[in-house]
């Protein structure tokens, strides 16, 4: 894939730096309340915490978004939609998992409908622990993610591409069918 459109003008390394700088300052978030953590998203979006300061705005469709927040527990039915949305997003894309539930199931550790660990199915760039994380924690996570992007550490989308077979295999253990 041709990554640098202007190879002769900007060296590849510099181009990557510019690209990272741009994408960290303009993270468009997909508007997807996957779980109860979405309850703390309105305060983060609105006047008190105002995430638009960092250029983060909610977007209606996955085609336009760079950042997906998996806000809380993931039911099996939702996982399919999350994967679908994630695959519709365009690289580079980042995932922040929100709350304790995507880490190990949280309070729903014994539920029959909650997948316990999210990074078995899609790559997660950042976890925020806590039930539910406070807006300050969320803002902190955004800053951390921006730092990671800057340093080239947030590369879950590359992992997904690299280990696509493994991710797909894990997903297909949960889904009985995958409509395309």
């Amino acid at each position: 894939m041709n990554e640098n459109p202007l190879p002769s003008v900007i060296p590849d390394k510099e181009w990557k730096k510019i690209q990272r700088m741009l994408s960290k300052r303009s993270l468009w978030m997909i508007h997807f309340c996957t779980g109860c953590g979405a309850m703390e998203m309105p305060p983060v979006m609105t006047s008190r915490y105002d995430m638009e300061r960092f250029g983060i705005i909610p977007m209606a469709t996955p085609r336009q978004a760079d950042l997906m927040l998996v806000t809380g527990y993931v039911a099996t039915k939702t996982l399919k939609r999350i994967v679908r949305v994630y695959e519709q997003m365009q690289d580079p894309k980042y995932v922040i998992a929100f709350g304790s539930c995507p880490i190990n199931g949280g309070i729903y550790w014994d539920s029959y409908n909650i997948i316990k660990r999210l990074d078995k199915y899609i790559p997660v760039d950042l976890y925020i622990a806590g039930c539910m994380p406070r807006p300050e924690a969320v803002m902190d996570a955004f800053l951390k993610l921006m730092k990671d992007i800057d340093e080239g550490k947030a590369n879950g989308w590359m992992r997904y591409r690299k280990y696509y077979d493994q991710y797909k295999r894990n997903q297909m253990r949960i889904f009985k069918r995958w409509d395309e």
Binding site: C36, A75, K77, T78, I107, Y108, S111, Y112, I114
Partner: peptide, 27 residues
């Protein structure tokens, strides 16, 4: 999409443990 099986989980927890579980029914 948000089904967690609360009613099942409540049957597995003591009367007091459930207090921590149920607020999550309506966020």
């Amino acid at each position: 999409y948000l089904h967690r099986g609360f009613e099942k989980l409540m049957e597995r927890r003591t009367w007091q443990m459930n207090v921590a579980l149920i607020p999550r029914i309506c966020v």
